[in-house]
Design a protein around this nucleic acid. Structure first.
Lengths: 189, 189
DNA sequence: AGCATCATGTAGCGATTGCTACAAGATCGT
DNA sequence: ACGATCTTGTAGCAATCGCTACATGATGCT
């Protein structure tokens, strides 16, 4: 009679399960009944706890933004890179890893929602980028002449590369990075 | 008795009207009956002509890709830029213009669909990027040492900038561009 | 103990979804 | 003129949508 202790069902316990579901199935098609089943409750109770589906999504996006920041710190060390190119290569390798694919698929949905002004999307997207930017600043090489600007420059390149990769232009982005970084440092692997 | 001639109702005449509707209201929420009303027909006939909603969306994405290429040629001259930075500034100014906003909102939806593997999305996204890349290659300055690589580099920067702008990080991208282009040319306006 | 608040299940409502069966014009080849 | 094919309207179906009314158990305060 050890295992299944009954957890209290509240937002706090629900959100990770909801997040897992949208990571697997996307935000767009997420409707109350499937979300409820995935989190072991009923649509009735989701509305009870969150008030509205719209509010649920907003809460969920906030949770995802927090989880992203935590995962970022956990997955990647915080030692500085030796060059900008190395920092770039490091983060790209992580972002394109198998483990990150569900998140990347979700990410572009969040971007689309933010671009269209859906409630809750823009703040979450903004927060995640701010976290990534902060982490990038800490990654900038020791003697970098402009760490703040460099991090922003790298962020722009990273997001452009990831978008091109998402639509099947990974080779284009890779060629672009090689061509663009020849002046400033070694090309990323 | 001049004006309203009855056009034959087929894919060819329907697609522009459908495109106008998804530009205004998005792809995600697009359902047959609203699409039908927007194009002056019935859901019944949309299914008759396209076979399936999925096929309709795929056709529509193909049409949009073609329309994008045409609009790109029409809206922007084909004279070369003087510097890479100027080419970058030129295309960014266009992409962020008021007229392009509906398209940019739609664009991120297409990217999200492509990332998730929805049928028809990836080919359309890929085609639009190929068109933009080709146009960019023609824009590269006269004596550029590596026009092909440079165009790919600029494309990566452009898409990163546009994504950051879409989620409210336009300033971050702008700072990044300034920091990144100091070595290679003047910062874009 | 009794009462009040919280938590949850059951059932359902009206709207919308993609799609289809059926029938009736419309058009056209012969 | 006649039959065949193309085009279109009407009506509806089963599924799903977000959400709610109602009732009932659980919990906790006094």
């Amino acid at each position: 009679m050890a295992a299944s202790r009954k957890l209290p069902m509240n937002k706090h316990n629900l959100l990770p399960l909801l997040a897992q579901h949208v990571l697997a199935h996307g935000l767009g098609g997420a409707s109350l009944r499937p979300l409820a089943k995935a989190s072991g409750t009923s649509d009735r109770m989701l509305v009870y706890h969150f008030g509205t589906k719209e509010a649920l999504i907003a809460d969920l996006l906030g949770y995802l933004a927090g989880a992203y920041a935590a995962a970022l710190d956990a997955a990647m060390g915080s030692e500085r890179a030796a060059t900008r190119g190395q920092a770039l290569a490091r983060i790209l390798r992580h972002a394109r890893s198998e483990a990150m694919r569900p998140f990347m698929q979700l990410w572009w949905e969040i971007v689309a929602g933010a671009a269209r002004g859906l409630p809750g999307y823009a703040p979450a997207a903004h927060a995640m980028m701010a976290d990534l930017l902060a982490w990038l600043e800490g990654q900038m090489p020791e003697g970098d002449p402009d760490p703040a600007g460099g991090a922003r420059y790298l962020l722009t390149l990273i997001e452009g590369t990831l978008m091109l990769a998402a639509i099947g232009h990974a080779d284009t982005a890779q060629a672009g990075l090689r061509a663009g970084l020849l002046a400033g440092g070694p090309a990323p692997s």
